[in-house]
């Protein structure tokens, strides 16, 4: 029993930390897809976020912001992510490009542009490592609670809590505000929304830019907490994982949260399964492919049918 608890005390925080970037990016994707714009470009937005998060942190470190630097870096990532997502918005909304193709182009561009800049600035394929890292913290009082304390509130990043707060905010915005209603109606039935006087184009731009902001934040958090620097290998597939979480979570913020945490668990397990009795014999590959297999099963309706917003990827 004590052993199991000890293992959970390692894995649960690790899983929560791993799920944080996925969760934020998935929530970003939710805004975009709920407005009717497919966002395969989440990967690229995370790349851009990771890049600007690290470069921003390095910059603010150098001008003496100290431990506030990573937070400033994240802020930079939010802004740059939103700006960069305009590329997808302009192409797919204004210029009526195929949304998936435009997303693919965005992914190419993000990686190309960010690594290009890194090479031009640092003269090599990766940035310097940031020295002002975020620290894992114990939450005062809450971490004292037996069992739950060490599991959920100890040695965890503040950004993880931030992500879960954002879930609540997104849920409220999507389902309880006029803005959310408009966004959803644009994604379900743009023609009807248009006749009701909702500005379809503007809502979609907002949806895509929010996905850029949150995707950027997700990428920055991954880079700042887990990677420590930025290179072409920093974001490899997390964006697609976030997209999977969004679909697996059926385009619902709480569902996306469940899916992201689940994927985080699979990731944490695949790393530490060797130390866990009973799991050590399971080849690591099963843990690695689990999120992807589950997503396919979810889509196939074995885990409850995932219905996308109706107007998704309609170019006009």
């Amino acid at each position: 029993m004590a052993d199991i608890l000890q293992i959970l005390y390692t894995i649960v925080p690790a899983a929560l930390i791993a799920s944080t970037p996925l969760l934020l990016t998935a929530l970003g994707g939710l805004f975009s897809e709920r407005s009717g714009v497919v966002n395969i470009g989440l990967e690229g937005l995370m790349v851009m976020g990771a890049f600007s998060g690290i470069v921003g942190t390095l910059f603010f470190e150098s001008i003496g912001f100290g431990f506030a630097s990573p937070w400033m870096g994240m802020l930079a990532a939010i802004i740059l992510g939103a700006v960069f997502s305009l590329f997808h918005a302009v192409a797919s909304i204004t210029l009526k490009a195929d949304q998936i193709v435009s997303g693919v182009a965005l992914n190419f561009l993000a990686l190309g542009l960010s690594v290009f800049i890194v090479r031009e600035v640092f003269d090599r394929g990766q940035t310097d490592a940031i020295s002002a890292r975020l620290f894992r913290i114990d939450v005062p009082f809450l971490s004292e609670i037996p069992v739950i304390g060490p599991m959920f509130f100890s040695r965890i990043y503040a950004t993880t809590f931030l992500a879960f707060i954002v879930v609540a905010i997104v849920w409220y915005v999507i389902f309880k505000t006029p803005f959310g209603l408009r966004l959803r109606s644009v994604g379900e039935h743009p023609m009807a929304a248009d006749t009701m006087g909702i500005k379809v184009t503007r809502m979609r731009y907002i949806g895509v830019m929010l996905s850029g902001a949150l995707g950027g934040l997700g990428g920055a958090i991954f880079a700042i907490t887990t990677a420590g620097n930025f290179s072409a290998g920093t974001i490899v597939g997390q964006g697609f994982m976030a997209l999977a979480a969004l679909i697996f979570g059926k385009w619902h913020p709480v569902g996306a949260m469940g899916a992201a945490v689940f994927f985080g668990f699979a990731q944490a397990l695949s790393i530490s399964a060797q130390q866990i009795p009973g799991l050590a014999e399971i080849p690591q590959v099963y843990m690695l492919i689990l999120p992807y297999v589950l997503t396919i099963l979810a889509l196939a309706g074995f885990v409850g049918k995932a219905e996308p917003p109706k107007a998704l990827n309609q170019t006009d």
């Binding site: 192409a91 182009a105 965005l106 561009l109 290009f116």
Partner: peptide
Amino acid sequence: DIIIALIIF
């Protein structure tokens, strides 16, 4: 890569 991405765009 940048040029390729822009051509696709």
